[in-house]
Design a protein around this nucleic acid. Structure first.
Length: 273
DNA sequence: TAAATCCTGTCA
DNA sequence: TGACAGGATTTA
């Protein structure tokens, strides 16, 4: 579920509540939710650590630990991280509970069980997906020329390329569709077919849509909530995603849905060429 | 580059 | 009952 704006919102809402907290108890209720060790070893390794800071890379949350280690969390489709009071109820979807010396807890809840917590002693030990992330869209190294560099000669469809985290870190299905709409580019165009002008429009659209998503605290369609359990607001500002059959906000043509790379892609057949 | 896979839940 | 869901990896 969560893309860059949602993960960033979780980070911001969690930071004050977990920074400086010492972990005194770890409950692993879903074995598959933790890596790379079995629950007992994972719990033992994490107990006694203090969370020094919380950062984000793409869709990963990074909890920096006092030992120098790193707890990486990927929420995948339905994962939630909730800062809650001690004794907050466990449900059948509660995967991991971190108990703090203060009595507060951090709950990792995940309906579909795709999400993962990964404890590593350094970046280089992290899973391949983390190590191969492309540039952050909000950083200075994400430029029009970088976009040109990764798309030149590519025969894959632009929508699928935008979802490849090795090329750009943080875009998901919603924001990729919204960016393509704003740039006036059809999702099935090949990466290499974009003109210089289209590359510029796409670059600006990606930056804008992610910044607006963060400003509105993310998009809640089904499951997403931030670290305090609060829903986002950007769903009210989506122009194409989830709007099949509804009139385009620009030209009135009904929004179409098609499958690109196995994912639903919403677009305006009139505005996006 | 597409489909299957990991899961659970919801909706038409 | 089948299709689909803010993701990513593995397999064909």
């Amino acid at each position: 579920m969560p893309e860059l704006p949602e993960v960033e919102t979780v980070r911001r809402t969690l930071t004050a509540k977990v920074t400086g907290q010492r972990i005194t108890g770890v409950e692993v209720l879903s074995t598959r939710a933790v890596r790379p060790w079995a629950p007992e070893e994972f719990a033992a390794a994490l107990t006694g650590e203090t969370i020094v800071s919380v950062s984000r890379r793409g869709k990963y949350l990074e909890f920096h630990l006092s030992s120098g280690g790193l707890l990486l969390v990927h929420l995948r489709m339905t994962g939630r991280l909730l800062a809650v009071p001690g004794g907050y109820p466990r449900t059948k979807h509660t995967a991991v509970v971190l108990g703090f010396a203060s009595g507060h807890e951090l709950h990792f809840v995940d309906q579909r069980k795709f999400g993962v917590m990964e404890l590593v002693s350094s970046d280089s030990e992290a899973s391949l997906g983390y190590r191969t992330l492309g540039p952050e869209t909000l950083d200075a190294d994400f430029t029009v020329s970088y976009l040109q560099e990764i798309l030149t000669g590519r025969t894959g469809k632009i929508k699928a390329l935008l979802l490849d985290q090795r090329l750009i870190a943080g875009l998901g299905n919603i924001y990729a569709d919204e960016a393509l709409f704003r740039a006036g580019i059809h999702p099935e165009r090949t990466g290499g077919s974009l003109s210089d002008q289209e590359l510029e429009r796409l670059h600006r659209a990606i930056c804008q849509v992610l910044e607006e998503g963060i400003c509105h605290r993310g998009t809640t369609i089904r499951n997403y909530v931030d670290g305090e359990g609060i829903v986002g607001e950007f769903q009210h500002h989506l122009r194409v995603y989830g709007r099949e059959g509804e009139p385009c906000v620009v030209c009135g043509t009904p929004i179409c849905r098609l499958k690109v790379g196995g994912r639903s892609s919403y677009h305006c057949p009139q505005c996006q060429k």
